[in-house]
Simulated assay, not measured.
Amino acid sequence: MESNLETSGAARLGGRGTFALLAAHCAGMVDMVALPVWVGTLIGSYHLDPQEAGGLVTLFLAAAVASSVVFAPRLNRLPARASVSAGFGVAMLAFLSMAAVGDSYAAMAGLHAVAGFAVGCSLSFTHGTIGRSRNPHRLFAAAGLALGCFAIAFLGVTPGLVALHGGPILFRVFAGVMAVAAAVCAMAFPVLKAPHLEMSTAEPSFSPTVWSGMLGVACMAVTQAMVFSFVERIGVDRGFGLAAVTSVLIATGLVNLLPAPLAGFLELHVPARRVVLGGPLAQATLALVITQSSTLAPYAAAGAVFVAVMIFTHTFAFGVLARLDVTGRAVAATPAMLMTGAAVGPILGGTLVKFLGYGSLGIAAVLMAVAAMLCFSRLERRAVPAGASA
């Protein structure tokens, strides 16, 4: 009998099931970890121009968003373990094919779309299952910490492999990550029964409050991608020096290990609504410092913690959405929320920088923060911790 099979919608996961969810989260969110190496490899090893390289990654992200839109509403109607394993399996084959097709841009584009759709499917079921656990806030915080550790290992090894063996090795590494995730999930991904719905076999539509929370997360994701995509360029173009800018990026990776476990620790001590309202404000403030600084110290301090604000705030937002929608479908749409921002942010930021300069990114961040805070303001006013039951 499956050790992690549960009879209720809110499930207590065993160690094997929890490990499978963490592995699936790391594989599914690989774009957040690998984006600089990914784009750099397409430009340096495949000799694509920045627009072409960015276009391939945008195809991956757009396909993941479309996949999340398709599969998130079907979270409780399809077999999660089979869907997650199959998604990672298809992504593995797509990445292996990328390593073999050479310089064919059309083939690369099609394979990026296939990989993105497959990963989006797996990630939707992963986040939906986390959302239906007994404590989604704390489990999502653990997943954030796992992703931070994975990022350090990935970024510590992969650039050297690409320099030594060429561009195709990156896609073989991606394929290996997907293969491990597929195997782990096939053996241990949690199997949960659908939540009981009284008087109807149809799942209820999302409330306006849930939609507002989801839109607030998407607004923060746009700001995150819009500003962070240009952190390196801002530092270099303002004469801070490549070594100093690289040190800021390294510091960012180390700082990013902290917000997820901190959010888990503060779950019962800080009202979630206060966090999600303060997060966009802090994000916009840091964006202004990054884009307006003419000296290294404030730029470095704000740049090192910029991503951490999003991780911390999103952990609380994830817990709130999981509590408001017990079916898990809202948090199953997490890939759509985050990857929409990842796809839109760089294009929006690039357009603003091209015509208005780096300072315009800070102004745009303030406007997005206002939109996010308006969305989050519709969440319940009760100071209920994110891990409490509805």
Score class of each variant (00 low, 15 high):
residue 3 S to N: 09
residue 5 L to C: 09
residue 10 A to H: 15
residue 14 G to L: 04
residue 38 W to M: 12
residue 40 G to E: 03
residue 51 Q to I: 02
residue 53 A to K: 02
residue 70 V to G: 00
residue 74 R to P: 04
residue 88 F to H: 03
residue 89 G to Q: 10
residue 91 A to Q: 12
residue 92 M to E: 15
residue 97 S to P: 05
residue 101 V to T: 12
residue 106 A to I: 11
residue 108 M to N: 04
residue 114 V to Y: 09
residue 118 A to Y: 15
residue 121 C to P: 02
residue 125 F to M: 05
residue 128 G to S: 08
residue 130 I to N: 07
residue 132 R to S: 07
residue 132 R to Y: 02
residue 136 P to H: 00
residue 139 L to Y: 14
residue 147 L to V: 06
residue 148 G to R: 04
residue 149 C to L: 15
residue 151 A to P: 00
residue 154 F to R: 11
residue 154 F to E: 01
residue 157 V to T: 10
residue 160 G to N: 11
residue 163 A to P: 05
residue 165 H to A: 13
residue 168 P to Y: 14
residue 169 I to F: 07
residue 173 V to T: 06
residue 175 A to L: 13
residue 175 A to C: 02
residue 178 M to Q: 13
residue 180 V to Y: 01
residue 184 V to F: 13
residue 184 V to R: 03
residue 186 A to P: 13
residue 191 V to W: 01
residue 196 H to I: 03
residue 200 S to W: 10
residue 201 T to C: 02
residue 201 T to M: 03
residue 202 A to N: 14
residue 204 P to Q: 05
residue 205 S to E: 15
residue 212 S to N: 11
residue 213 G to M: 01
residue 215 L to Y: 08
residue 218 A to N: 01
residue 225 A to D: 07
residue 226 M to V: 10
residue 231 V to Y: 04
residue 236 V to H: 10
residue 237 D to T: 06
residue 245 V to Y: 10
residue 245 V to P: 07
residue 248 V to F: 12
residue 249 L to T: 09
residue 252 T to M: 13
residue 260 A to V: 05
residue 274 R to M: 10
residue 276 V to A: 12
residue 279 G to N: 06
residue 283 Q to T: 10
residue 287 A to S: 14
residue 289 V to Q: 12
residue 293 S to R: 01
residue 294 S to M: 14
residue 295 T to P: 12
residue 297 A to H: 00
residue 300 A to H: 09
residue 308 A to K: 08
residue 316 F to M: 13
residue 322 A to L: 04
residue 323 R to V: 05
residue 327 T to P: 09
residue 329 R to D: 06
residue 332 A to D: 05
residue 335 P to M: 12
residue 337 M to R: 01
residue 338 L to T: 00
residue 349 G to E: 12
residue 349 G to V: 10
residue 357 G to W: 12
residue 362 G to Y: 09
residue 364 A to T: 00
residue 368 M to L: 13
residue 371 A to Q: 06
residue 378 R to S: 02
residue 381 R to Q: 15
residue 383 A to E: 14
residue 385 P to G: 06
